[in-house]
Nucleic acid binder design. Structure first.
Lengths: 218, 218
DNA sequence: ACCTGAACACCGTTCAAGT
DNA sequence: ACCTGAACACCGTTCAAGT
């Protein structure tokens, strides 16, 4: 609504992008905006609603993924491209705004923009042949994976953090090596996360096609 | 190590289970243990390492899932049961300790117990026929989904929160209804999350079998 | 309408003492 | 070895004033 509010929200997002969520306080934000902490409250209404507004702003950036100009129709085999485009865009936004991952797990993403995106994904799944009764579940399966993957990257679960020796007291010489583990690639080999994400998307698209063909047989 | 330390860790987990992570402070924990805040530091060494120790404790509970007594062998079609057992156990632990989800996304789960569990999962995927070069990726795909699903449930992303009308300014009458959406089940119908999780696991097991058969053709 | 300043009840953590 | 008490630099937020 108000321009002042948008300015404050922008400053909050910038601050969180640069220094992380833990560095975003009403006091640091106020300093950034050039005002007293209490001056923020009429505009953003407390820290909790500030965070809500920040994820709302981010969700609004989700669409359109890379829509063709003729509208939101999902045609033939185009469902694979639409789903991939959404997944890539969601991952990109999450990596660009690492603070958002933790927040997204605790909010139902019920903004108008988010609901519109979900609607498009439902349409794509129907086009793919997923039975209507399974469409919502499959959408949640895919979006849960995409959110989880990006959150793992952004948070450091995949080991993207600092290359320290994971603390004291590690003796992995025997417990960790099962009879099969020498067949696997080196555990600490660097991973191309873009390539892994694309391979995962491919497998999930095949899963969707498989659910669809199972539905046709039934 | 020390009994005092274990006692403090137990109190911290209990406090977080009951009242959430945000209610766990060095001060509230000290009061619970019956001691001054500063007395905790020699035992748990600061809040960050306290949280690390808490997830370590939780990861130690992950195994064994429901191991048969004759050892960790993965046989024939037993890989489906082993993976399902791990997934159910992980989800159960996450729902039992909702505070852990946020922490797990930011730590590589490199405790001895967690590495042992991952080793068993790798063995199961090899047994399923997944090509060695793809085993680590598929393990991450599945564990990322399981963690994401449980985090969504525990955090409230799936709408399990309070049944309020999601704030002011919701007009979903037209934007939300695409041409297909009337084919879908009611958007706000209650969902059986246990059943959804089981259906997802089934689909992921089929995905694994499909990756395996693709590997056999190549 | 918009902002300030003092105050309250909290944080994690350091440091010098106590027994 | 184990714990205490005072202190420091932070939080989010309320409330009474200022212009």
């Amino acid at each position: 609504m108000s321009a002042r509010r948008e300015e404050i929200l922008g400053a909050a997002v910038a601050l969180a992008d640069e220094s992380g969520l833990e560095a975003l306080s009403m006091r640091t934000l106020a300093e950034r905006v050039g005002v007293t902490p209490m001056a923020l409250y009429p505009h953003v209404g407390g820290k909790a609603t500030l965070l809500d507004s920040m994820v709302g702003r981010l969700l609004a950036e989700l669409l359109p993924p890379e829509m063709t100009d003729e509208g939101p129709q999902v045609t033939e085999a185009g469902w694979r491209e639409l789903l991939s485009a959404y997944a890539r865009r969601a991952r990109g936004l999450l990596l660009q705004h690492p603070w958002s991952a933790a927040l997204l797990f605790s909010r139902p993403a019920a903004t108008a923009e988010a609901l519109h995106a979900v609607g498009q994904i439902h349409a794509a799944l129907l086009e793919a042949g997923v039975p209507p009764l399974e469409v919502r579940r499959v959408e949640r399966l895919v979006s849960t994976f995409v959110l989880g993957f990006a959150a793992s990257e952004a948070g450091g679960r995949f080991g993207g953090g600092s290359p320290e020796a994971s603390g004291p007291g590690r003796q992995v010489s025997e417990e960790n090596h099962t009879a099969h583990s020498e067949l696997l690639p080196c555990p600490s080999a660097p991973v191309d996360w873009n390539a892994e994400f694309e391979a995962d998307l491919k497998d999930l698209a095949d899963l969707i096609a498989s659910v669809a063909s199972r539905g046709r047989r039934a």
